[in-house]
Write a protein that binds this DNA or RNA. Structure first.
Length: 447
DNA sequence: TCAGATGATTCGAA
DNA sequence: TTCGAATCATCTGA
């Protein structure tokens, strides 16, 4: 037993032996000699130590009585003080040194993430960080306000749950800490417990609770991740195109039925016209894809579904064919009139009732423009084909052409080959109009 | 609530 | 890389 408190007093070096392993720690020699006062104290200490050492050999009643006597012993505070010091300097102090761990990197990551997601940290009108996160997943556009609010509402919900749970943990931690502190203070009357030890115990409790908090943070992070992935998953946030957009795409599809494969430029143009936003395009899993990919999807689906069930699309095809035909007819009429007005001497202008187009390529482009389309440049060839399709329907409508596949069909899937595939754009249509003749519009793209 | 419609994804073939 | 085909997941209207 080290009696460091005795260092301040006069000590006889003969009575003290230095412990070889514990440095400057002294032990009382049981046979040492001190002054009269020292002898008395030594005797007291000797008594106490003896009683402590033999207490376990005695009966319970005797032990209890001895314990009570020890508690009331005048040297008890001094003994406890010493014992506390011993505890400090032995195992517990080593443990104490280990307590000052560096901050857990995992916990730091979780904290940073929760802060970035707007779950922890100060709340500013729903969480500015959360708003930023909401804006980030939507590509920064403002056309997804519904999804934003939904996302933010759910994020707020997570935030609330997180804070409620955190509060509960803190409350439980405080309650438990208080309870343990009271218990230790109570016990300090019967066993040597230093304030430092109580402090250390509080630290241990806090660490235990913080590990529970880490679990809470982890599960909160997981919830946020799931929320984000749900909102980022394109399938889950699928939105049907507007009626107008579908109409534009259908118009293109049916007017290019012989070759419903729009070029990249056409796709981009269609995307623009359909107001397919960047965010919609970004919602595709293939990140970095353009709005044209949304159009590609639409055409891919359309082609396969049209081919699978041509009969079902018959009515729709007729509708769009008629629509396009009317526009085309108006365009032709306007062009003819314009031609007559501006060039009365043009050789083609005077032909009686025949479609003698002065410049088929430009003409088709004009018609496309009137129809709301403006695919130019590399699309001229395709436009020619599309207008051939359109005018064929004019002829079909006016002449009551039927291809034999459907009795009352204005439009027929004549561009599908025997294998179920689309004919090449340059391949002449298998259908020849009965009204065809010199000067009439031929289905051949050469026109 | 459910069936059909529809946009997106995946995978194999060319 | 693009397309067809199959499939998934969500939307929509009855």
């Amino acid at each position: 037993v080290q009696f460091s408190f005795m260092h301040s007093r006069q000590q006889d070096p003969r009575n003290l032996t230095s412990h070889p392993l514990r440095g400057n720690v002294f032990y009382i020699s049981p046979h040492g000699h001190e002054g009269a006062d020292g002898d008395g104290r030594k005797q007291d200490i000797g008594d106490i130590l003896h009683q402590i050492m033999t207490i376990t050999d005695q009966s319970l009643d005797e032990a209890q009585a001895k314990k009570h006597a020890l508690n009331c012993h005048r040297m008890k505070p001094a003994l406890f003080s010493v014992l506390c010091e011993i505890k400090e300097k032995t195992g517990l102090s080593i443990r104490g040194a280990q307590e000052e761990d560096p901050p857990d990197p995992q916990l730091m990551r979780l904290d940073n993430m929760l802060l970035a997601e707007g779950v922890s940290g100060p709340e500013k009108g729903g969480g500015s960080a959360g708003a930023a996160a909401a804006a980030a997943f939507s590509g920064g556009s403002s056309d997804n306000s519904i999804e934003h609010s939904d996302y933010r509402a759910k994020l707020t919900q997570i935030r609330q749950i997180y804070h409620t749970e955190l509060e509960k943990y803190e409350q439980a931690c405080n309650e438990f800490t208080t309870h343990v502190m009271n218990l230790l203070r109570e016990q300090s009357r019967t066993r040597p417990i230093s304030p430092k030890e109580i402090e250390r115990m509080v630290g241990i409790i806090h660490r235990k609770f913080s590990s529970i908090q880490m679990q809470l943070k982890q599960s909160t992070c997981e919830a946020v991740m799931i929320l984000r992935s749900r909102f980022l998953d394109a399938r889950r946030k699928r939105r049907n195109f507007s009626k107008q957009a579908t109409e534009i795409l259908n118009e293109y599809f049916y007017s290019h039925l012989s070759n419903p494969y729009p070029s990249e430029e056409a796709k981009e143009e269609l995307a623009k016209k359909c107001s397919i936003t960047v965010s919609q395009a970004l919602s595709l899993k293939q990140r970095g894809s353009g709005a044209g990919d949304v159009v590609s999807n639409w055409f891919g689906n359309k082609r396969i579904r049209y081919k699978k069930n041509i009969g079902k699309f018959q009515e729709e095809a007729n509708l769009y064919a008629a629509k396009t035909a009317v526009t085309a007819a108006h365009a032709v009429a306007a062009a003819v009139q314009n031609n007559q007005t501006n060039s009365p001497t043009t050789p083609n202008s005077g032909s009686s009732g025949s479609f003698n187009l002065p410049n088929s390529g430009d003409m088709f482009m004009n018609m496309q423009s009137l129809n709301g389309d403006s695919y130019q440049g590399s699309q001229v060839g395709a436009n020619v084909q599309s207008q051939v399709d359109t005018l064929r329907h004019v002829i079909n409508q006016t002449g009551g052409y039927s291809d034999g596949l459907g009795g009352n069909s204005l439009y027929s899937p004549h561009n599908l080959n025997a294998n179920g595939g689309w004919q090449d754009a340059t391949t002449p249509s298998s259908v020849t109009s009965p009204t065809e003749g010199p000067g009439s519009v031929h289905s051949d793209t050469s026109n």
